[in-house]
Design a protein around this nucleic acid. Structure first.
Lengths: 187, 187
DNA sequence: CTGATTTTTTGATAAATGTCAAAGGAAATG
DNA sequence: CATTTCCTTTGACATTTATCAAAAAATCAG
């Protein structure tokens, strides 16, 4: 879990006891490309830290798959609304690459929140960070043109272009595959 | 602060000490319509609970004001990204009605997070709720047509139509005022 | 009450993007 | 290496929504 503890370091400091408690509930999963972490219509029971690999959160819209989020190594993947509300959600999560994950199960994590103030704090700061990220994505969708959004993604996640099919990137950016293809042709 | 404590009740239970600590840092503000709570380009230093009134979060886009969020009585208003990141943000918040607010200043609140596990927990759960709300708004913008979004808003906040000018509602829904006017004419 | 201001509606036109269809490339598999 | 499958591009056209402009309606202040 070294990578995970590195990942959370900017959020808050954890004492030895908290760290050990987290290690005790975390499960290391090594899964092949294509594996479905979360199935649409079910409750998401785990928060996933991606040590290596790539995940894609998506949902069905009128028979077409829309990519909602992409997470690469050293980041979190989760069907957040479902995980928080404990209700089924339309989102599925699949692996776009063979991946190594650390899965934190909901209830044990909740227990740690109660038990360790430090971990509750970590939770608050991680959710806050998620909120900021989502707001910025939201702003982009409001503010920027599809072309600008594409440029931004190129800057922030240059590897995605090689790792994720264009159609998935297109729906992530909120346009059709054809439109994104034309945007690229112009640049 | 009764209304505030009622508001947070669904999130978590607070003991007497935590409640008193919150009361001690909260400031009761009574402000007229048009007052600017947060100025674009500055850091948001307070989390506002609205006891009575109505606020509007907005930003400038190419010389036009875009409404980002609307908050009525018994809810929270805050320039969230700025409040969390401690950086200036493009968003302003103004009062659309004379309002009674409880303002929770950032640093004292942070201190209470450290001091009271209960309050840290409350913070985590409130941010989580904010994340869910934002995600649902995001989904709407992806999923629903402008017309459906308008219908939803009518259902969830029927009073907004009387209280908020159409142009602000239009940009909140992500369309121009003219388009929203036409949508209404069709129904 | 009345003129001024703000808000909402309506019309004509332009721009952006989606849809449908098909062809061209790239990558994977036996 | 040949063939199938998946991914990407291109074209023609339809649809949606924005933009610009102006009229109509509602609201506010003296």
């Amino acid at each position: 879990m070294d990578k995970f503890f590195q990942f959370i370091q900017p959020f808050t400091h954890l004492g030895q006891a908290s760290k050990e408690a987290l290690v005790n509930i975390a499960q290391r999963w090594e899964l092949p490309k294509g594996h479905l972490l979360v199935q649409a219509g079910t409750v998401c029971h785990y928060l996933y830290f991606i040590e290596a690999g790539l995940t894609r959160t998506f949902y069905d819209k009128d028979g077409k798959e829309v990519t909602d989020w992409l997470s690469a190594e050293n980041s979190i993947a989760c069907s957040i609304v479902s995980f928080i509300t404990r209700k089924p959600d339309i989102r599925s999560i699949e692996l776009l690459e063979p991946s190594i994950l650390w899965a934190l199960p909901y209830q044990p994590l909740e227990n740690l929140y109660r038990q360790y103030h430090e971990i509750e704090r970590l939770g608050r700061l991680m959710v806050s960070d998620g909120l900021v990220q989502l707001q910025q994505r939201f702003d982009d969708l409001h503010f920027a043109t599809a072309s600008q959004r594409y440029q931004k993604l190129l800057q922030s996640h240059p590897t995605f272009l090689q790792r994720v099919p264009l159609g998935m990137i297109a729906s992530y950016l909120g346009v059709t595959q054809e439109t994104l293809s034309r945007i690229r042709a112009q640049v």
